[in-house]
């Protein structure tokens, strides 16, 4: 199991498109992915739950990946957030 803290850098935070892309990326991997924000778990089943968590620019989330492809999953998911979802 690996975990990493990452900070949101895009001005609009986790809005519709980033949340959608993120959920799709999570589903590509077989490992169990969890994310916490302010100590609370964020439901990664659907982008709407992520949006409802109101995670803003400058705030930190903790990602955890647990399973055979955890390294690859962490690299892609943390990378997406760190790159500001390309915004």
């Amino acid at each position: 199991m690996i975990s990493k803290k990452v900070t949101l850098v895009n001005a609009q935070g986790f809005h519709m498109r980033p949340a959608d892309d993120f959920v799709k990326a999570v589903k590509k991997y077989s490992c169990k992915v969890t994310m916490t924000h302010n100590g609370k778990p964020v439901n990664l089943m659907n982008k709407m739950f992520i949006i409802a968590s109101a995670i803003k620019c400058g705030q930190e989330v903790e990602l955890t990946c647990d399973g055979p492809d955890e390294e690859a999953a962490m690299a892609e998911l943390a990378g997406m957030i760190e790159a500001g979802f390309g915004e």
């Binding site: 609009q12 935070g13 809005h15 519709m16 709407m48 739950f49 949006i51 409802a52 109101a54 803003k56």
Partner: peptide
Amino acid sequence: MFIDMFMASGDELTMQRAADV
């Protein structure tokens, strides 16, 4: 359900997304 969740966030940007839903 999502409109209510977004409105309950108290965050202005998130509350505005309720308008999309």
